[in-house]
Each structure stands twice: as structure tokens, then as C-alpha cells.
């Protein structure tokens, strides 16, 4: 039974169910698609819909913001999709948009994933149903309430015992009708707890992030502060270009996160300028993004080794 069953009972004219295409290994016949359904719905019209309040000039009383849409993906039992950082294996979903001129779509916004460890492999997965948000900025000067249409192709890898890749095409019509808005709002409220929260809401802040050498690798150390810093139990990193993250080596303990990174271009490469991801506290994922400072090298006075970073912060 769908986890969104109560909300799903409502009708929604603006929601289009997608059609899927996927390859399959030769000689094995076509397997049933693990993706039962993909729907694209308007979650928040951002003040662009005709029902939003207007000022004297006929423009919205409040400046309109981006339009939040959601891809609702239902999978066959036991199958999963992947987070923005799939981990050591798997592929994150990707969307290809066809939007009206002047419109721009942001990246997919994922719920907090489940972390799975299989031997030495770490993966970050989403169980069904999966709701992925995306913010769309309409063209500047678009008349209030102006109707428009868009389409998207969601590329996915779904895995259970084995994996299948495919893509599903979906369409969207704007503005949504009232029933569609109600259903989308109920869906969004039902899954709100699954999405990352700002770090400040968790009673946390980043004291600093430093990079130290570990052979040819970098070891990133993120020091957390705040009343709940000691409750942080894990860190799910976002992908880092030009580095391979040692997911199995990530440790989060006593308010400090350590994460090994192997640079793609060898040991002489500088550390990343910043790291980002989710700190897991009390069952919730809190977003962090922190600039990385190089860790000062230890120096020797007489027979005593002085490490200025350790002496101040550990």
C-alpha cells in the first residue's frame, strides 16, 4: 500500500503519469520495469498561479518566487533509487527538461537517503515511493497566471538484487487546478520530515573544516559546535568533483567528522575548497557546507612536535 495513500485519493488534473523506456540484457527477454509510475506535480506555485492575491496594479501582492515541482516515483516492492551521491555504486537520477524560453530549472532536491553497507560497499538509497523536488524559475516578466507547459525525462537506475536503468517521460501543465494543488500540498507535507533541514535548526554549527595529509590522500576534519554537536552520528557527503570519497572510512564521533578523500590527480593536488553533505542527528539530516582550510603542518621545537591545530581544537 502506498505510504501516500490518503493524499493519493484526491484527483489531480495537473499530474501526468510518465511512460518509461529501459534497456535490457540481450537474450534474457524484457523484464517488467521496476518503476511502476512517475508523476510530475506542482508542489508550490510560488505565487504565480491566478489564485494568489494581487495588488492594485494587477501584479502579485507578494513578489513571486520559484515554482517547486515534484517527481513522485513509485517502484515495485524491494527496488530502490539512489541519492544525489549514490555512494560506492549505483547512479543518481538525472532529469532532462524541456521548458519554455527563459525558464530555468535547478538541481533535483532529494530526501535524506538510507545508508546501506554491503561488505566494503556503502550506498545511499531511496525506498519507494520517492519524491524528488525541483525548483523552476519562470522567465522574467512572465504575466501573472500565464499558462505554460513543460516536459521532462527522468533517467533512473533502480536496483534490487540486480539493476535496471531506464527513463520516464512526464509532462506538466501550469497553472494547476485546485484539486491538484491540494493533493500536491498534502504529499509535500507528508514527506517534509524526510527532507534535509538547515543546520541551525539542529542546534548545530560548523566550527571549522580542515584538511590534513594521510599519505597521498586528504583527511577532512569537520568540527561541529552547538548543544547537539555530540549527538551527530553520521555524515552523508555530497559528491565532490576531482576526488573519490572513502565512504567506508567516514567517522562521526564526539562532534567531529572525519572523511578520507583520494584526489583524482594524485597526492600533489590541493584539498577541495569546500565540502557539503548531511549531518545525521536524532534521525534527521541537517545540511552543512563548509569551506576547507589547509591544516597547518606540525613543526618541531627541540625534541617536541607542536601541532597548532591539534593544540587548539582537540
Amino acid at each position: 500500500m502506498s505510504k501516500f495513500a490518503p493524499a493519493a485519493a484526491a484527483a489531480a488534473i495537473l499530474i501526468f503519469t510518465g511512460s518509461s523506456l529501459y534497456p535490457f540484457p540481450p537474450g534474457e527477454g524484457r523484464s517488467p520495469s521496476p518503476v511502476k509510475k512517475v508523476e510530475l506535480l506542482v508542489v508550490d506555485a510560488g505565487g504565480h498561479d491566478p489564485s494568489s492575491s494581487l495588488g492594485r496594479s494587477g501584479s502579485p501582492a507578494v513578489a513571486p518566487g520559484p515554482i517547486r515541482v515534484g517527481f513522485l516515483v513509485e517502484l515495485e516492492p524491494g527496488w530502490h533509487l539512489y541519492w544525489a551521491n549514490p555512494g560506492d555504486a549505483g547512479l543518481a537520477p538525472v532529469v532532462r527538461w524541456t521548458l519554455p524560453a527563459g525558464f530555468e530549472a535547478g538541481p533535483l532536491i532529494h530526501p535524506v537517503p538510507a545508508k546501506l553497507i554491503d561488505g566494503d560497499l556503502v550506498s545511499f538509497e531511496h525506498d519507494s515511493p520517492v519524491l524528488l523536488f525541483c525548483d523552476i524559475a519562470p522567465a522574467a516578466g512572465l504575466p501573472h497566471g500565464c499558462p505554460w507547459r513543460a516536459s521532462a525525462v527522468l533517467e533512473w537506475m533502480a536496483c534490487k538484487e540486480s539493476c535496471i536503468t531506464g527513463e520516464t517521460a512526464v509532462r506538466l501543465a501550469f497553472p494547476p487546478d485546485d484539486a491538484g494543488v491540494r493533493r500536491a500540498r498534502e504529499l509535500a507535507e507528508a514527506v517534509a520530515v524526510r527532507f534535509p533541514r538547515p543546520l541551525s535548526e539542529g542546534g548545530l554549527s560548523v566550527e571549522e573544516a580542515r584538511a590534513g595529509r594521510s599519505g597521498g590522500d586528504w583527511l577532512i576534519e569537520i568540527a561541529l559546535s552547538g548543544p547537539r554537536a555530540g549527538e551527530a552520528v553520521d555524515f552523508y557527503p555530497y559528491p565532490l568533483e576531482d576526488f573519490v570519497i572513502g565512504h567506508a572510512g567516514i567517522v562521526c564521533r564526539d562532534g567531529k567528522i572525519t572523511m578520507p578523500l583520494t584526489p583524482s590527480r594524485g597526492g600533489g593536488s590541493p584539498p577541495p575548497a569546500a565540502v557539503a553533505g548531511l549531518v545525521i542527528v536524532g534521525g534527521t539530516g541537517y545540511e552543512i557546507s563548509a569551506p576547507v582550510a589547509p591544516r597547518p603542518p606540525a613543526f618541531v621545537i627541540g625534541t617536541q612536535t607542536i601541532n597548532p591545530w591539534r593544540s587548539h581544537h582537540e
Partner: peptide, 11 residues
């Protein structure tokens, strides 16, 4: 052999 560390549904 898979170990689930963090459940996304119930947190």
C-alpha cells in the same frame, strides 16, 4: 549481505 544504517522513511 546488506546492513541498513539509516532508515529514510521513519528516521
Amino acid at each position: 549481505n546488506r546492513t541498513r544504517i539509516f532508515g529514510a522513511l521513519f528516521f
